[in-house]
Amino acid sequence: MKPEFKIISDLIEKNASVLDVGCDDGILMEFLKENKEADIRGIEISKNKVQLCISKGLTVIEGNAEYDLKQFPENSFDYVVLGQTLQAFINPEKVITELLRVGKKAIVTIPNFGHWKVRLNLLIKGTMPITSSLPNEWYNTPNIHMCTIKDFVEFSKIMNFKIFQSLALMNKKVTNINKSNLFIKNLFGELGIFLIEK
């Protein structure tokens, strides 16, 4: 289980309705079902992963979040979760707008491109950074819109959504991000976790 799943779960109330966008193998869904008795649905692009979720008894729709979120009416879910995939969409602006339309709240996690290892990698080697959380080469990475924690905070102002809570994950420890520590968190946070609302 990814370390941020517990953190995501802590942001969600019991019995909430949740849509996990890009639910992968359904591990977060199972966790939320068990721990939060959440009414949980998933949307997943990979047929194999959908099959895996079905074998776990999870309700999953095969689909592409970029096009298939539009089928859900406004405020269909209490929470919509988007885990580490915002950077892989062709149009992240559209996806964020859709998340906040479909969900009353959204939880978005992003691999932080501002992490010092990433910065150092580019600075010293002069090649596109490859780290444990970003293992692909530039030419085969699905991550076409990488951003930093700071970028995402800026993005909230541009896109006009509210950040309720922002957390940084470093060494499996979670800390709050605020205005005064943003520089530090953006340098040392491996992952940014944001609870947002329109």
């Binding site: 649905r41 047929k47 999870l58 729709i61 095969e62 089928q71 009416p73």
Partner: peptide, 18 residues
């Protein structure tokens, strides 16, 4: 059909088999 079901918040899963 999936879309229509989602519009009323029904519990619906969907898969397209290759």
């Amino acid at each position: 059909i999936v879309i229509a079901l989602n519009a009323v918040g029904a519990n619906v899963g969907f898969v397209e088999i290759e």
